[in-house]
Amino acid sequence: MASTRTKNRRAAMALSVVVAAMVGLAFASVPLYKLFCQVTGYGGTPKIKVAAGDSASTRQIEVRFDANVNKGMPWHFKPAQVHVTVKLGEPKLAFYRARNDSDETITGTAVFNVTPYKVGPYFSKIDCFCFTEQTLKPGQEVDMPVEFFVDPEIYTDPNTKDVHAITLSYTFYRSEPEDSDKKAETAARPVDGKSNIKG
């Protein structure tokens, strides 16, 4: 029979492990949160897919485009089209126009989400300027593409079948360029999608 002293020490050890585990859980929440949103589409996190399926359908949906720049980002950034109507499953290309209105070269990264949030799992971006940084020289203006499709499953899911309009929204932030000689890149090679953590 262990003495009270020993029992106390053992109990304190066990409880300390619990404390450490909870701290670990707090830090683990960072990647878990990101992963959870990417996998489930929670919080309006679109899917980053490589190709559309063959399940095109005749049903249509309106997709709207929204653009923002954060404070301290002197770019003019607007969608080239306010909205388009797309067939479900059909890949569509849309453009955003960005112009560096300042007198210095500026690099930006874009974060994004879709609304309403519940359509996140059904909105896929095949190709997007947001996957890489963009650098614009003073006065330079570019058209930036985003290729996407809306999964026809959106209308079979009872949760989302009442949605007739999806809004895709970007916010450009100023960032430090990885390579200071980087030129404007608008072709996106999907690396690890630089998606914003949303949840």
Binding site: T109, T171, S175, G199
Partner: peptide, 8 residues
């Protein structure tokens, strides 16, 4: 958010 984080 500017660098992939989330205030939420």
């Amino acid at each position: 958010p500017a660098e992939g984080g989330d205030p939420v």
